[in-house]
Write a protein that binds this DNA or RNA. Structure first.
Lengths: 252, 252
DNA sequence: CGAATTATGTTCGTTTGTGTTCAAAACGAA
DNA sequence: TTCGTTTTGAACACAAACGAACATAATTCG
């Protein structure tokens, strides 16, 4: 049975990521044993994870819909989000992919109206629906808990039913030859299908992606129409940049 | 039947966010038992939420993943959830539909393993993924914000790619002839497709549904394999029950 | 008016929430 | 490892809250 104190415990846990039994007992003015019983209950519901001495946030999906402070403070990503959102025309049909950068774009679209946005990013859904003025579509697919993404063949099938005016996708890594990579083949197949079925594709990636590597190749920079990032990509071969897409550096 | 005292209770609750039975009894000069009856009534209308010792304002907008709150108090629904979950065999492929009763079933499945669960109920996703031991699939579809359901033709298309061992669906109303109804044609089409594409269908509905009506017909009780509810459905014509599905009354 | 229905009060056994104690388990440092 | 400390969960106890059943008062309606 959920009681108000449980909600307070959840709030405190979410605020601090980790709480101690003793702290909660004092804060809520009950005994240690009562807090323990509460934590057992909340852990059974999967709302927290029990650790010796207290509790932590559960790993993975459960933060869906929860505005994570980390990303809100990430000025690079929110700048990219704003810049990319300016490419989205009113009334258009847009696809939004997986990753925190795509979620920043979603945040920048909150006050727009008349958009039809399809996404396979469950984290983006509450953001997109916040304004209540856009139609939100969701792809099908297998849930990948690590990032609340929908991937796999079912995702590909469902998005092939559409043709997007604009697709906004991210990637895990970007090498100096202008190739885009991800960790998961299932996600790569989704991204490839999206590129195929969209009139225009925007890649959003902050410069941290320049240093990384990942195993599965999605596509080449030249397959996308616009590359939206926060810093000029010095790491890329100049020739690659020249032959590639238009470049949009998010203003500070 | 709403009476003036109910309005006063609502006012006091809204003023203080939380009220105690004892306080209300004194303030309104009636006995504790009367206040309890009032609170039961108001909670049934969704105007307040019952808590031990009193009542609170209903929790506001349901955040995906944070929704748990409201249903946990509803013992009827969690009993139905437990009973229905006992019908789910290990290793089977299950579909889970829209509605708070279906979410109760999800909650009862948390500790199961090896299931493949597909759902068009976004609220059910964080619950289903809590254990981390099951595969969660999501249908595509248009997001209906009122209940975080995915509906429409895209939802139908994506679930037709599967065949389920067991489908668990709810309904908004159930009339005395044993017909199931919903408010939204888009959702009805999904439910119909689910029934078609499942080896076995379980309808979950608490007895509050017996009194209601809704415009769009989903199917007849005889189209489902099992009807799982909390009280014997006296309102139904006995003949209907006899010809219909097996009945599972959730034990108290 | 009287009968039937509804609302409220009263009683009482049951359930629930919390506190307290204590032995076992987990942890951390030597 | 071993020792000492902290944390834990089970068991028990108690008070508050609950709901069912019945009784009584108020009201509706024929």
């Amino acid at each position: 049975m959920m009681i108000p104190r449980h909600l307070k415990i959840l709030d405190l846990t979410r605020r601090d990521s980790k709480v101690r039994v003793e702290y909660l007992a004092k804060a809520l003015n009950v005994t240690l044993q009562t807090i323990r019983r509460d934590l057992v209950f909340l852990a059974e519901q999967g709302l927290i994870e029990r650790v010796h001495g207290g509790a932590t946030l559960p790993s993975g999906l459960r933060n869906i819909g929860y505005e994570q402070r980390s990303q809100l403070n990430d000025t690079a990503k929110s700048r990219i989000g704003d810049a990319c959102a300016s490419e989205v025309k009113n009334g258009s049909t847009v696809f939004l992919g997986i990753g925190t950068t795509c979620e920043s774009v979603a945040r920048a679209l909150i006050h727009r109206t008349g958009l039809m946005v399809m996404t396979n990013n469950l984290n983006a859904i509450p953001i997109l629906s916040a304004g209540g003025k856009n139609t939100v579509m969701v792809t099908g697919g297998r849930l990948r808990e690590s990032d609340a993404g929908l991937v796999g063949p079912a995702a590909v099938t469902s998005l092939r039913q559409f043709k997007f005016d604009l697709a906004i996708i991210g990637c895990s890594a970007l090498d100096e030859n202008g190739d885009l990579f991800d960790y998961d083949l299932d996600e790569v197949m989704v991204s490839q299908a999206v590129i195929e079925t969209s009139r225009k594709t925007v890649l959003v990636a902050d410069n941290a992606k320049f240093d990384r590597t990942a195993p599965a190749r999605i596509a080449s920079l030249s397959d996308v129409s616009l590359f939206c990032t926060d810093e000029p990509p010095h790491q890329l071969h100049p020739a690659t940049v020249g032959a590639g897409p238009n470049l949009l550096i998010a203003p500070k």
